[in-house]
Design a protein around this nucleic acid. Sequence first.
DNA 1: GTCTATACGTGGATAGAC
DNA 2: GTCTATCCACGTATAGAC
Lengths: 193, 193
Amino acid sequence: MLAAARTAFAERGFDGATIRGIATAAGVDPALVHHYFGSKDKLFLAAVEAPADPDEVLPAVLAAGRDELGASAVRMLLSLWDGPARPAGLALIRSAVSNEWTAKLLREFLVAKVVGRVVGTLGYSDEERDARGALVASQLIGLVMIRYVLCAEPIASASHESLIAAIGPNVQRYLTGELEPPAPARPRPHPPS
Amino acid sequence: MLAAARTAFAERGFDGATIRGIATAAGVDPALVHHYFGSKDKLFLAAVEAPADPDEVLPAVLAAGRDELGASAVRMLLSLWDGPARPAGLALIRSAVSNEWTAKLLREFLVAKVVGRVVGTLGYSDEERDARGALVASQLIGLVMIRYVLCAEPIASASHESLIAAIGPNVQRYLTGELEPPAPARPRPHPPS
DNA sequence: GTCTATACGTGGATAGAC
DNA sequence: GTCTATCCACGTATAGAC
């Protein structure tokens, strides 16, 4: 049941998936879905929140040394997305793009619970942590978009090792490289005085 | 009319936008839309193909020296997306995520007409050109996702200069840096013989 | 508890009056 | 040419029989 919902949300996004379709895919009656979950929103939350617990995988990422964090993050992302977490991840992304409240869900999950926590171990100021975290997120989401959403070659079929070797160093630069703080706001054109 | 369609597709994606909504936003009758464009598909094509001519902007990107190509690409992307091309871009992305034929549209437009042509000037083999192009695309799409779709701070409000400084070098590495060719296929586990 | 029937809204698309 | 009226399919959600 939840598996069918996850699959449907992953393939068509929140707005595109239908309760009727999910119910028939699961071999049950559409009315049962409402009986169990109450609404489409709650069904989505139940389908997506189950397999997305960062506490289970973050320690493995952080176990890498400071200079291997980038490669470690890419490796974890690939092993999750090429494992059982892909439907939930696709459901989140496909839904977030056209639906405001799922976008908020993804944004907060991603920034606060995942990337922020990884960058948070590096001892930066809050501003720099958020800036570096957003840069890391941009590369990782881009990888997900190309490999799993748009399915553009050769990245869609590339091996984990080759992607880690190609992308890991770039993520590493965002994490620990020297870079001017990506100004949170416009570099004030003319200071107050 | 086309502007209203672009805006609607940009905000809600292909599936989410409605002909009725576009028509009322444009102050015309819904039936007129069908009369002029024939179908929703053709309306979408007309709305996004207009302002998406790569031939107009690519020369400016390529005018940069080989070592400034990364920064130049990021600069052009930002100036397009913070300019009049944003609605068309958002319409393409929002639609491509949940709609197969628009996904194909975006994939081919992006890989063949944009990134591929930039990397194509660098004199790599076809395989390496495609691999580097896909890596570049992953970073650029990720930037678009974070800044314009998810609107995550601080990237959403960051200045062009700071983003070019932060992301340009990473794109540059994908373009001209030393990296093993991201293997187009799985590194053959056991060759034919 | 499970499902049939249905209310109620909203799509895209079309026919035909003016 | 423009728009009213309408067809038909499909969405969420609910009421109520069994």
